[in-house]
Design a protein around this nucleic acid. Sequence first.
DNA 1: GTCTTGCGCAACCAAATAATTGCATATACA
DNA 2: TGTATATGCAATTATTTGGTTGCGCAAGAC
Lengths: 108, 108
Amino acid sequence: MKARRDVFQALADPTRRAILLLIAAHATTPGALAEEFQSSRQAISKHIQILTECELVKQEKRGREIYYHINARKIDEVDKWIEQFRKIVDTQFNQLDKLLSTLKKQRK
Amino acid sequence: MKARRDVFQALADPTRRAILLLIAAHATTPGALAEEFQSSRQAISKHIQILTECELVKQEKRGREIYYHINARKIDEVDKWIEQFRKIVDTQFNQLDKLLSTLKKQRK
DNA sequence: GTCTTGCGCAACCAAATAATTGCATATACA
DNA sequence: TGTATATGCAATTATTTGGTTGCGCAAGAC
């Protein structure tokens, strides 16, 4: 567990998506979340760690418990990509060269 | 290469997102796509295969070439999830029980 | 104080993923 | 017909992922 930590990758796992919905509905602790899944507390904790690393959730330590909150703005990154994608599809974008140079920049 | 094949997982890989943008801009063949990346043709082909399996792109065989087209409707699945997520965040959704039973159904 | 609870951290493991390499096949072109 | 091109398929490999188990450490409960 180490490398690519972006929102897209975080959303790829169905358990993590479920966790996000639960936190969105009600700020919760790792233990409380784990009870909702068949996996262990540690497994859930790792998922939350990934969600925290890519800033989709933030922690609030309160006593010996940790409450997780949603950072909704991070989802905008996904929205932005989809919007860009849709725009290209819709306009049948023919400035291919422009797109290619954009992609090259992103790779660096 | 076998299991989970959904749109979220397909979008998790940055190369696949780039491929999608390229196809969106201009229907293309595997060979033409491979030239835009440093990876081999086979590597790109596998990515396209994944994108095809989850129906984000469709094939059109023409002679010995294969042209790929975008199936934009599949992206709606992501949109829908984000919309659901946003709705929960915005309303601070307190019918937690309802959400929990929804999640349980989805797991089956 | 002692005990229990709520966590994180590290080691470990099985399975999935991404990429390579080599080979097969079908179409175009000379 | 023979050769080059465009592609898929299968086997192999390194890395990443998702999960488990065991340990340790604070913060409340008694």
